[in-house]
Design a protein around this nucleic acid. Structure first.
Length: 109
DNA sequence: CTAATGACTCGAT
DNA sequence: AATCGAGCCATTA
């Protein structure tokens, strides 16, 4: 049994469109400032084995793939993003601002 | 019960 | 520009 926060994070991540990415902080903010961005990544760490969850579309505010080491191998995250048309160089998303998908902006609050 | 940890972020130095 | 400390809060030991 998972907490509501757990489900909220997973739900938002699932809504991230293919070829787009979002950040831990944006998700935390969308769920309400009462949630911390640390929790978002921490929840994903628990769910990383769930293949239906596009955790590779969640990066930190700089567009860096900080969570890559939590996947099966450190290349998986980048590979998935590049398959979707998101270019990654040196563990950082190119044109991050272009690919950035902000739930606070894209989803009706 | 307390303390430590984390895929983060922001502001101060 | 680079580094540091505090805030955030659920989960685990």
């Amino acid at each position: 049994m998972q907490s509501n926060f757990f489900l909220d994070v997973v739900d938002v991540v699932r809504l991230v469109p293919r070829g787009k990415v979002t950040t831990y902080g944006s998700i935390a903010k969308y769920l309400g400032s009462s949630r911390s961005s640390r929790m978002v990544g921490w929840i994903l760490n628990k769910q990383v084995l769930d293949a239906t969850l596009p955790a590779h579309r969640v990066v930190n505010r700089k567009g860096i793939l900080t969570g890559k080491n939590h996947f099966e191998n450190p290349f998986f995250m980048q590979s998935q993003l590049e398959k979707e048309g998101v270019k990654v160089v040196n563990d950082q998303i190119v044109d991050f601002n272009y690919h950035f998908w902000d739930p606070n902006k894209e989803l009706t609050i």
